[in-house]
Structure formats: C-alpha cells, structure tokens
Design a protein around this nucleic acid. Structure first.
Lengths: 146, 146
DNA sequence: GCGTTGTAGTTGTATAGTACAACTTGAACT
DNA sequence: AGTTCAAGTTGTACTATACAACTACAACGC
C-alpha cells in the first residue's frame, strides 16, 4: 500500500471513529439539545431564518423528520414559525430569544470542550488541520463517504 | 479571535458537519451493513476476535446495545460466538467466512468512495491530514467533544 | 467451604431519530 | 378550470440506543 493509500485508509478509519462518538458525546455534553437540534438551530442563526424544506435539503434529512424536529423545537419555545406572505404554503423559521440563548450556551460549552481537547496543539497545526477539514467537507460529494 | 481560536472554531464546525453526514451516507453506501455493524466487524477482524464487553468499552456503547448488535450479526451469520474455556461467562466473538467477505466488500466500497473524494489531494496533504485525525481521536477524552 | 461482591451477558422497557407513504393545502402553469 | 408541482403534516414502522433488572458464573475473604 502506498503512503497515499494508507493515508486514505487512516482518514477513513479516523473519520468513522469520530462520527461514531459524536452523537453520544453530544448527549453527554448538552442533553438539552441533541446534535440535530443544535445543528438546525445553528443553521437558523446563521441564515437568519429559513424554511423547513431548506433544512431538509441542506442536511439530507427527510422533510417529515425536519417537520417533527421543528415541531419539537417550537414546542420548547426555541424557534417560532412565521407565515410567508409571498407563499402561504411556507413557514419561515426563526430563533426565539430563548433559542438564541440556549444555542449560545451550547456553543460555548462545545467550544470549551474542543478547545480543551486541542489545548496541546501548536497554532500552526490547528490552522492546517482546520484547513484540511474544510477542504474535505467542501469536496464535491461523489459517493459522499460521510 | 486569534488564529488558533478561529481554527478551533473551524475544526468544531467541520467535525460536526462530518458527523452529521456519516450515518446517512453509510446507509446509502452499504445498506447491508450499518455503520455500527461495520465498525464492530472491523474491530473483530483487527483483533482477531474479542468479547462483547471489549466492544462496548471501546466504542462507548452500553453492553445491552452491543448484545443486541451481536445477536443480529450472529443471526445473519456474520459472526459466531465461541465459549471461553477459561471463563464460562465469556463468549469470544469471531468473524465467520461470510462476515469476512461482507466486511471486505464494504471496506472496498468505502475505500473507493474515500479515495475518489480525496483524489485531488497531494500525497503530502493526505499524510498530514491522516496524522492530525489520528492525533485528534487519540487525544485523552476530557469532555470528549465527539 | 460458603457467602459476598464483582463481571459477562440477556432481556424488558422506553426514547429518539429517522424514513417512506399517504394526505392536505396552496401555487403555478398551461 | 384542471393538472401538476411544492411545502408541510401525520400515520406507521424500524433502528439504535440507554437504563434497569435479572441470570450465570468467578473470585475473594474468612
């Protein structure tokens, strides 16, 4: 196996290990907000509101799944739906103040955990690692191995 | 935000994106073997057999979860249990031939997908990226942000 | 030896996240 | 007006998961 092939092998294995751990640790780190909810809220914040269909498309989730997640987030008062005057089928989703607060809080705790984990890394390595990850995720899908 | 802080932020975000995609794409790539099953089989292959408890500990899964996964894998004939003569409470798990074949096949398809995705990368970057990921995952847990 | 405590694994029960299919409502385009 | 398309909801089912209670066996202390 060439160095490149063996590196690909390692990347695959380590990414998979990471993925396996992510959900469980999210549950431990912020039980009040699942990884999915956190991601959806983050997207809403970033975009300043969007439609359920956009969330579904962006995260490759079924619209029924998003519908239920959104319903739950609305029930707990973290988001609200505003009817779209342009198109009465559409509901534009927005963070409430409570949603913004919880999101900020969870973001802080996640950030602290990552920072702690990466505490021993030289800045140069952090920057390079971050760049590799961005590049990997931005890579046009293909078979989308994760 | 310092370069290091912003890199940590990026790492967090990109790792989360990756984690979110992993399960869905595993389902698309190899519906015959869930991400968990694939991981467990891989571990068995690597170790040449181990106990259910080891799997649970290594992957931070509840023993009941592993027990059911193992039962399913046995039902489909991919693994077999051998009683441990040393300790009658223990069952040592081993891949069957069928299990080895399926694992190899899924490994091939995953490898191909990763390779395709990483096709444009210079070898040097692949090697460095792989090293960063290994280091990240090996980092002593702490809050285990994934 | 025998009771106590610990470990391996199973099973009951509950929950979350997810998909697919069928449906409703409204939009858009003949 | 009628057909087709898009947004979202709801019914149903399945998978992964955890926790708790249980069984079976092991190991230790006395």
């Amino acid at each position: 196996m060439s160095p490149a092939e063996s590196a690909v092998e390692t990347i695959q294995r380590e990414m998979t290990i990471f993925a396996r751990r992510a959900r469980a640790s999210a549950g431990r780190m912020h039980p009040e907000l699942s990884l999915v909810s956190y991601t959806l809220l983050g997207h809403l914040e970033e975009r300043g509101g969007c439609r359920a269909t956009d969330l579904a498309a962006h995260y490759a989730l079924d619209k029924s799944t998003v519908s239920r997640q959104v319903a739950a987030l609305e029930r707990t008062g973290l988001i609200e739906r505003r009817p779209d005057p342009e198109d009465h089928r559409v509901q534009v989703l927005h963070l409430t103040e409570a949603g913004q607060e919880i999101l900020a809080q969870v973001t802080r705790s996640r950030r602290a955990a990552f920072r702690e984990r990466l505490a021993g890394w030289p800045e140069e390595d952090l920057v390079r690692f971050a760049a590799y990850l961005e590049r990997y995720n931005a890579e046009p899908g293909g078979a989308e191995p994760a």
